[in-house]
């Protein structure tokens, strides 16, 4: 037996199922009651390799899922895993989305950024909210969760930069159009996750139109529970793993580094978009 103390140690879980979600994007399903809020994340540990944060992309009473895009050494190792393999899970961590107060949940997702928002959409539908899901990507093959979102009866609007499916253009252009034509009946909040240039645009649009918004941000996370200081953002000095990853519109607007730079594992600032 193991006594129960307050700890931050990985819980070893078997992968129940792996689903291909889109090009280079896979979802890993675990049988475990996680009790997370949409927007929260877990730390995924591959013994002796590394451990990285992933947003919870699905959850019901007895299982949850995370979605992993193959972008580097670690995520490639995750993509090689098979159902039945064991990995470590810590969490859930961080602050999630607040949606209970709003009648209309208007989601803007950039590609793989749809992960926490697809969980949010499911939860909001369960609570009888009106959910609009703007799902954007470069091209059709980069759009995740198409089946799940169509089955969930959300109002799904797909947007691609190359026009290979849905509306041709940017998700934020569609957001701006919807908000301009919005009849202002019922309370509404925007929820966004995706590339930082997109998030910057969401901040500008929502501030101009005085619409509430919550954004899920990403920074290099090490400990995940607010101690090491790796993920702190300028100039507020707040921790993305603790006071985030979901922040409200005014907080996002006060994060001066948003869309400008981020820090590497060493702590060095690099321009947004640079690799090393």
């Amino acid at each position: 037996m193991r006594l129960v103390y307050n700890t931050e140690l990985p819980l070893m879980l078997r992968i129940e199922r792996i689903a291909d979600e889109a090009e280079d994007i896979k979802t890993l399903v675990f049988m475990h009651r996680l009790n997370s809020r949409p927007g929260q994340f877990i730390m995924l540990w591959l013994p002796r390799i590394d451990e990285k944060p992933f947003a919870v992309s699905y959850q019901d009473t007895d299982k949850f899922a995370i979605t992993v895009k193959s972008v580097g050494e670690f995520s490639e190792a995750v993509h090689r895993l098979k159902p039945g393999d064991r990995v470590g899970i810590r969490g859930p961590y961080g602050k999630g989305f607040e949606f209970e107060l709003y009648q209309h949940v208007l989601i803007v997702a950039g590609g793989y950024g749809a992960a926490p928002l697809s969980f949010l959409a499911n939860q909001a539908m369960l609570q009888g909210k009106r959910v609009t899901f703007i799902l954007g990507a470069k091209k059709a093959s980069h759009l995740p969760y198409l089946n799940r979102l169509s089955q969930a009866h959300v109002k799904l609007i797909t947007v691609t930069e190359d026009g290979s499916t849905g509306i041709r253009g940017l998700a934020t252009e569609v957001l701006a159009r919807i908000l301009h034509n919005h009849d202002r009946t019922g309370s509404l909040s925007v929820y966004a996750c995706g590339p930082e240039a997109m998030l910057k645009a969401v901040v500008d649009i929502c501030r101009n139109l005085h619409v509430a918004a919550q954004l899920s941000l990403e920074r290099y996370i090490k400990c995940g529970f607010g101690i090491c200081g790796q993920c702190c953002v300028d100039e507020l000095g707040i921790r993305i793993c603790k006071e985030g990853p979901v922040v409200d519109l005014e907080t996002a607007a006060s994060i001066t580094e948003l869309g400008v730079y981020k820090r590497t594992p060493s702590g060095r600032r690099i321009a947004m978009g640079d690799k090393k």
Binding site: L3, Y5, N6, T7, E8, L9, P10, M43, W45, I49, D50, E51, K52, K222, C223, F225, I227, C228, T264, P265, S266
Partner: peptide, 12 residues
């Protein structure tokens, strides 16, 4: 860069 993760854990 420091060590790879995990770098910090809480035990009992």
């Amino acid at each position: 860069a420091g060590h790879k993760n995990p770098i910090l854990l809480a035990f009992d």
